[in-house]
Design a protein around this nucleic acid. Structure first.
Lengths: 219, 219
DNA sequence: GGAGGGTGACTAAGCGCTCACTTAGTAGAG
DNA sequence: CTCTACTAAGTGAGCGCTTAGTCACCCTCC
């Protein structure tokens, strides 16, 4: 009874355990989850290169060597965080789009989901967006593929709206860039507590994106 | 006549020397400029912590110790880059706004200038935006002040348009965030050559921002 | 008793920064 | 024009420290 595994379920006021469980469903071991959570927070706060392997293991309440029981290297931990973060958003916006039918509604849902994700998982997103330069070439290439998919998805959604006549926008690629930038940048500036309410922000961003695309009011 | 100061003007195909001269007008020594230019590029490419003092000095064609003749520390070089970058944009958007009078025209000019700056000086901006966590507390506080000024400036411009009836936007602060994000994020994704033409991008972004703010066509 | 999670002690490499020193150039005195 | 005194820029070597990663050795539980 020295270490009850009930820590996660009975009381999780910050939602931290749930957050990590959501982001890394494939990681089964509890210790591995603690390690990756610690790594994620350290990378987000200090940056990959300023984070030492000791920071990571200490954050998980383990000795320096413990990291290497679960990860091949420090970079492997970064890759895990980065991959999950990127795959997560892509899933989220695809699911959101599937819930709606008309281009304006789909677009609003996508922006709302994209923003919500970057607020909810801003720690993971900060790592995913701003630390990928530290990945190995192979890992970077994999991440780049997911990013391309995400961008292409948004571009196609906009194009659909242009084709249907719902959107009026001169350059589809540029509009996609702008909308993605709005959401991604949330991970840079967002501070829990000090910022606008997440749901409100997501709705406002969705509306801003809609009028940016020239959606007529009421559509 | 041993060292003519004509180096910059006669042949500078990449615009690199001009870039550094524009960003660091207060740095008079040629060697110091080479050092800060090298530091800027290294920080942007690999990040502050992954950049060694040897990278910086080697990039300037000097020995490891030479950096410390011109800078108190590695962090001092980061501070110099960061400060110049931040002050530069603020100046640029203020100047741009001064050239116009009506809120829509002023806003378009501001976004155009903001975008152009982030494209032209994307290397400096990348450092200024994504490496400031490595600054000392005092230096960070100084930079934070400049950022606040920039954000406030944009917010006030939007408010002016709302007051005049030119803009229709529910939340001024959120709109400011969105517009700033579009521009800042350029520093993250922009790659010379592989991206849209800078001037075209700036104009498109200005137009997207305008319609985001609900400017009626023709205004 | 064996397999795997976990550890303390360790290492080779690399880090920011310093130091004693050389070099090039300048200025004033004679 | 030369000699001397002085300075600022730059260097090679290397110090003290930290880093990512290793390894022989423990536990604990099946």
């Amino acid at each position: 009874m020295s270490k009850p595994p009930a820590t996660a379920s009975e009381a999780d006021p910050t939602g931290l355990d749930t957050e990590i469980a959501m982001l890394f469903p494939e990681v089964d071991s509890d210790v591995a989850r603690r390690l990756i959570g610690s790594a994620m927070h350290a990378f987000a706060e200090r940056g990959y290169h300023a984070t030492t392997t000791r920071h990571i293991s200490e954050g998980a309440g383990l000795s320096p060597a413990a990291l290497y029981v679960h990860f091949k290297s420090k970079e492997a931990a970064l890759y895990a965080v980065s991959r999950s973060g990127h795959l997560g958003v892509l899933d989220a916006i695809r699911a959101a789009a599937d819930e709606e039918s008309t281009p304006p509604d789909r677009m609003r849902a996508v922006v709302r989901a994209f923003t919500t994700w970057h607020v909810r998982y801003h720690t993971a997103c900060r790592v995913a967006q701003y630390e990928i330069a530290a990945l190995t070439e192979e890992h970077y290439a994999e991440i780049a593929d997911i990013r391309r998919d995400t961008e292409q998805f948004v571009r196609r959604e906009i194009q659909a709206g242009v084709d249907s006549g719902d959107f009026t926008v001169p350059a589809v690629a540029t509009a996609a860039r702008a909308i993605l930038s709005m959401g991604i940048d949330v991970a840079r500036w967002y501070q829990p507590g000090r910022s606008t309410d997440p749901d409100l922000l997501a709705t406002q961003y969705a509306e801003l994106a809609a009028s940016m695309l020239g959606v007529r009011p009421g559509r």
